[in-house]
């Protein structure tokens, strides 16, 4: 069974953000969330560390998590604040492991599975990790100066 760990939340956060924009290639993934209905609320920016194994975006958050659907529904119903989760015992990662190393005994220990969700959709990112607020490169990137860099829980 998957376990969902909360990494970032704000009051009614998941319902205050809509459009998901992202860039991804082999070594880089950046996800930006735009606030719904107000220009005053700044976009949120999440950056992920390479290697970027998979980036899946869809309207239905349950799509990648069919086996956890019941548990997930009850969790999400009572929580409209959480925007970013990390998933432990991830099915997608398990599936990736099977496909990547069919004959090797490995758990892909360095791979993390994150889920970002908004009112309109969600993104699953399998990658090497998430960049924290202290990342100096992020602060010097002029393209993201209007976005809020987040402090993570846990």
């Amino acid at each position: 069974m998957e376990r969902w760990k909360i990494l970032y939340r704000q009051p009614d956060g998941a319902s205050e953000y809509g459009n998901i924009e992202y860039v991804t290639n082999n070594g880089f993934c950046q996800v930006q969330l735009k606030a719904l209905g107000t220009v005053e609320r700044l976009p949120l920016m999440f950056k992920f560390k390479d290697p970027i194994y998979a980036v899946h975006e869809h309207d239905d958050i349950f799509q990648e998590h069919q086996n956890s659907k019941e548990a997930l529904i009850s969790q999400l119903e009572n929580d409209s604040d959480t925007i970013l989760f990390e998933i432990r015992n991830s099915e997608l990662k398990h599936w990736l492991t099977q496909h990547k190393f069919e004959n090797e005994d490995t758990e892909l220990k360095g791979v993390h599975h994150y889920v970002i969700r908004t009112r309109t959709g969600s993104v699953d990112v399998l990658c090497g990790g998430i960049k924290k607020e202290k990342d100096s490169r992020a602060q010097h990137d002029k393209r993201v100066k209007h976005a809020v860099h987040i402090t993570l829980y846990g």
């Binding site: 998979a54 980036v55 899946h56 975006e57 496909h99």
Partner: peptide
């Protein structure tokens, strides 16, 4: 409706 990006070996089959 949806998009995804993976390594090719993931979809080898």
């Amino acid at each position: 409706l949806g998009s995804r990006s993976d390594y090719l070996y993931v979809r080898e089959k």
